[in-house]
Design a protein around this nucleic acid. Structure first.
Lengths: 236, 236, 236, 236
DNA sequence: AATGAATGAGTTTTCATTCAT
DNA sequence: CATGAATGAAAACTCATTCAT
């Protein structure tokens, strides 16, 4: 019955918005407090230190992503792979997601200096690569992919997509320009994925998958005007 | 003939070492001053603001890299490509290298917040992609590569290598472990580069190119004990 | 009839334990709440402010001490004086005692800044000096002490004992070491008390009185495992 | 020739004044900064932490006291002892010194919680007791004192005087009232010191020594209106 | 060219207190 | 009675920058 969102969660939502607005490097507790309309002291009431808060944020993000993945297990390997590729492409209206991935990139670069953060980042990396490896394994079993090494190929794909996205978010001054990532994803489809497919299998075109993606999003997002549905998370 | 290095340059060297030691996020003017044995005030004498100093550092780094590239124009396209792949991710002094790329990654994530930094980063990206595109164009002209789109393929390769390196430096707690990058580079050779080669052409194995690389470095490094020769730079 | 201790009293017990554990300077309401397993809010329900709570604590402590004194009026002046000397500085549970006196010393030093606290401290000082003066008066009347000025001599004795204890608790890193105090008490007996005695009167040796003290305590302490019986209080 | 006082010293002077004005428990870096007309940041420039600053303050205080002692070595043991006793008595115009001793008492009660502070306090205690013990030893050698145990007797005297002062500063609401300490000192002279003297030796009356003390002070204090001459320090 | 001293604006964190339930 | 949640004011400390020399 309790409609009111829990403060601890609202704070994490504030972290998301504050990261988008200010980036990680210049993120202050005050920024977060402002974004969730709470007092700084309350942040410390729920999370002892700033680090605790950020670790909790990363952790929720990854868990949300894992939960989202479970919804997709019924699709065919080819569709799941297409979906995975498409998720890396920002659509022009996703300005916010670009800011977010930028902030995430900043946090990632803190990993080596912070044990607890690195733990989360490594976990995130494993989720990501394992997702692709699972898809590949399923596809190989079903005979729709050639018998490549699933782990190695997954590493290649994740590196490529992540590299494309990284360059997109770091280099672009116009946050609605998505050409860099899109080009990389399309090249990855042509040079890496398509040569893997069995002769009678076809990868759906990127635009088609993107269209499907935004349809799903509109469904889900009915009342999430400003807020990520604990889900825009996908990472590292 | 004046042997004594210019203070302005010694300061930039200090930036390099301070970035390796502390990362970008927690880099203070004092850190840099300590690394180059100068006073904070002197840094401000030569560079008005911290931002000026970091922009100058990025700029010198890219210029150094460009100069280094000019030494390689005489090699064959295949060798140059092999060299590029190898160089991107390995150097004889791995540990320092990784911390440096980590710091660079942090700076890259500041690009969107800082016009002048982004300028340098974009320039660096162009140098990088243009280098690969040039190699590809030369190779296509000479008939050793298939007639792919040089720009697009260059973007794919750069994204892949950069993505691999990024994941390596952000996820690894052991800074001398390069297995992640190596796997990605090898996969990139197999899945992306080799399918491009004319039927009678062979890409030299990674190890061979690496061996060549360290031979060259030993030659050059005679008196570079502690200091980057204004050159370890290469980026973004 | 009602066995359950009153919350207001349990809170004061918490103050005692929290003072021993943390000292006065860094004593927080949370510390006290933790020690009595109540919420901070409850402390404020029973005592409006932190100051109120501490004043109440001091007040109860002194009252408890006064009550304890009444038990001793039947003894001879010499015995009562010996007891006073011994009691002032030693108790069976030394370690707890020292931390408590330390905390008390901190509170005492707040007196000049806090009217209400000073009131209690002054009252405590009067109780203490009056106790000794009474003993001296009784002894002079009975002819066992020389005819000194009871008030002045009481002031001297109290200052000496308090000074010894203060130096003990502030200087010693080992809280069970009482050698400093013992030395001072013995010197006080030799130099101050003994010259006061009529020629046929003898002060019982310190060890003997101490033995008596611990015997009494063991009797009383049957069910006081963890808690001060509202009584360890005695002070300055 | 440099007339201007060193900032580091001015800051320590500020600590003295701030301690007098605010006490130790509520002493903030801002209070100290205000008292010495410097910025908080400058305090941190010269002393890394608040603790460092306070330790430095204690340390200078003790050193100053030791230096002052050296001026007195030529006096006779009886005079030196009289002087020592008198120094514990505040004269009515020494309101400031009372506040200071109060603050010092607060710091002393922090000893057990702070290793570095305790070090200074122990050193101070040793200086104080050794001073008296030295006087006693000299006097015994010269035959003006009875052959008491110098260390033990010194401990008794220091405890008594310190206890008197402690009670004075903690209990008195009127900071110009010095009756408590004065009474204790006089009692100590009568009951403890005088019985020690050889039959032909006399202790100069307290008032006389006090008069001598203030004469010396007026000499020295010519231009120290508001400032302790790095010397009001004397302590345990 | 070079430095030590100094500062203001800002950061995280602490804590007594209040409020709704 | 009792509590968890929430807050505002203030604390120590940091850091880029400036200034006098």
């Amino acid at each position: 019955m309790s409609d009111e969102p829990l403060a601890a969660d609202e704070i994490l939502d504030g972290v998301y918005r504050a990261l988008c607005a200010h980036g990680y490097a210049s993120l202050t507790m005050q920024d977060i407090a402002d974004e969730c309309d709470k007092s700084k002291s309350l942040l410390h009431y729920h999370y002892d230190t700033k680090e605790d808060l950020l670790v909790a944020f990363l952790s929720r993000m990854i868990t949300d992503y894992e939960e989202q993945l479970e919804d997709e297990v019924d699709d065919s390997p080819v569709d799941r792979l297409a979906l995975f590729l498409a998720q890396f492409v920002f659509t022009p209206d996703e300005e916010e997601r670009q800011s977010f991935h930028l902030a995430l990139l900043e946090m990632r670069s803190q990993g080596p200096f912070n044990e607890r953060m690195r733990e989360q980042l490594v976990r995130s990396d494993e989720v990501l690569r394992e997702t692709v490896a699972d898809i590949l394994r399923d596809g190989i079993d079903e005979g729709v992919f050639d018998a490549v090494d699933p782990e190695q190929t997954a590493a290649l794909l994740v590196a490529t997509l992540d590299g494309g996205r990284t360059r997109q978010v770091t280099l672009n001054e116009n946050p609605t320009d998505v050409s860099y990532t899109r080009a990389v994803v399309e090249q990855a489809m042509t040079h890496i994925v398509e040569p893997l497919l069995a002769s009678d299998v076809e990868l759906p075109p990127l635009d088609e998958t993107l269209a499907k993606l935004s349809a799903v999003d509109s469904d889900a997002d009915v009342d999430d005007v400003d807020e990520p549905p604990h889900s825009s998370a996908q990472e590292s």
